[in-house]
Computed example of a mutant assay.
Amino acid sequence: MGHVLEKRYRRLLRACPEGYRAGVPGWADGLHLGALAVAVVTVAQLPVLPYLVFKVWTGVGVVLVVALVRGWTRVAAPVAAIAALLTSWPIVLGWLHSPVVDVGPLYGDLGPVAPYWVVAAASAVLAVRRTGAGRASGQARWWGGTMPVRSPWWLVVPPVCWALQLARGPADETVWGVVRAGVEVVALLLVLAATLAARDGRWALAAAVYLVPGLVHLAENLLVTRVSGFLYWSVLTVLVVTSLAAARRMRVRA
């Protein structure tokens, strides 16, 4: 009976919107999903409302998210690379130089720019891999979809978060931080459950990609991080490492 239920659950995971992609290796699917999650969360945190501070930058973020949802990694890769370079300009060339085009925030720390570089690197890897496959088959088009289309529900997240900025005051930062932490923990628990049930590591890889910018931020702020912060990152790290270990164990058994 348990074996039958497990098979049914695995079929359900394969049929879900963010489940298996036919013809796509697990590592590519997981990398794509992780990059999309990082991009969506980063764009959702932009200070859009009540005043549109960075109009062009918000548009760039929307283009990036849409490109990733549609699977256009050859479009997402250069957009993410430009965004990463512009935001980290003070780190790359120092405070004495300003970028040619100043359309968004500039950061002098690694933590805030890490998400942009993670998305740029992941998109570049996916674009290069699919470009080679497309050329071999004679069907390569630079603007076409190189990865399967993701669920359109991803596009809803940024507008909802922007709308919540209207109702959120400075005193609510702690509350929103707790809410986000709770959502992340629940999501990573689901990743672990899906990894064990489907015996596939793509969700674990996506979770690891999502965690990388946070760990960069933690490493850069170790001396000022509170105990609650260490506990928060420890829980997320343990869940991700456990999922990766479970995926590796399942692969060895297979």
Rank of each mutant, 00 (worst) to 15 (best):
P78W: 02
D29G: 12
G30K: 03
V175S: 08
C161T: 01
S88K: 03
R129K: 10
Y116S: 14
H217F: 13
T73P: 00
D29A: 15
C161Q: 03
P158H: 04
A39L: 07
L64R: 02
A133S: 13
G169S: 09
T42H: 13
V40K: 04
F54V: 05
A80P: 01
V183R: 11
W95Y: 11
V103K: 00
W176D: 02
P105H: 05
V100N: 00
G132K: 11
N221Q: 08
A167S: 12
T146M: 08
I91N: 04
V240E: 04
V224W: 02
W162A: 05
V235F: 07
W95H: 11
P105C: 02
M250E: 13
A206N: 03
A35H: 10
G144K: 09
A35E: 11
V185M: 04
L49Q: 03
V179R: 12
S228N: 06
W203E: 02
A77G: 01
L218K: 06
H97L: 15
L166T: 03
A84C: 05
P159L: 10
A67G: 09
G104I: 05
V101S: 01
W27C: 12
E184V: 15
R253C: 05
L93F: 15
L12W: 15
W162Y: 11
L85V: 15
L205A: 03
E18L: 13
